[in-house]
Amino acid sequence: MEWRKERECIFGEQLSPLDQTLRSLRTSGPAIVWTTLFLFVPLLGIVFISFMSRGSYGELQLPLTFDNYSRFFGFGSFGFDPLYPYILLRSVLLAVGSTLLCMICALPLAFFIAGLSPRYKNLALTLVMIPFWTNLLIRTYAWQMLLSAEGLVSKIAQFVGLVGEGMPLYPSLGAVYLGTLCDYLPYLVLPLYASVEKIDWTIVEAAMDLGAGRIQSFRHAVLPQIIPGLAAGIVLVFVPATGQFIVPDLLGGAKTSMLGNSIAQQFGPSRDWPFGSAIAMSGILALMFALIIYNRILAKRGGEGLL
């Protein structure tokens, strides 16, 4: 309610709550209706259909059952099979692992950009923005060329003796991690840089003067100041990495299939929408669960929490 009073003063217009609501309808209304129709209704549809079943021609059938979910958790019609639980676990591990990798790489980059003189700073930032806006598909298939048996990276790996003669580096889980890191690194660098740029270095100097070592002063004087950027960046990487489809599809094989690939498989070639919906729902629930835990940890660390 405080907000309303403030606005009334600022724009010199006396608007009653009713007037404001009417004006909201005329401005925000169409976008809200659009997003509801094309996003929230379809998403609710996914929830509903995940409890239906697939007919023999791929059509949707009643009654409502939990069969799709029990199949997802391994209790299918042929006894226990941990295929999908493994896929879920693998996706979550990939998301966590690639987020950590991105964090390790983004930290030096963000500090490097913040430490440049203003002349080079904008250039360095734009150089991070360009891959960010370049088609992810293109960046991913380029790695296919580099990691194929004849590719440059594979040749180097063969020369060093990491892999056997004439062996490709893809499809493999390592290739999926590499592709994910390359694709999502800018997502973490940009918000992290915004925080690093604002660091009050006098606090760090004070910590050093008081006898803190490099690690201690990073932990107690630098880290608390960059938590907001780091927290935003982690979500920006973690969420799309959980649901990613292109990178595992192009750089991984059947053994590195992730949630995104399974969903695509069910909605595409297999045409089992109810099961695909159940996978998607389980994915969302896992994602929400991870974000809630993450938010808890952040709040405990004294941060404000993101959600």
Binding site: G45, I46, V239, G243, G260, F267, L287
Partner: peptide, 13 residues
């Protein structure tokens, strides 16, 4: 939202 989710929700819709 992960884009695959939006994609399949719309396909079904």
């Amino acid at each position: 939202i992960p884009d695959i989710l939006m994609a399949v929700a719309l396909l079904m819709f």
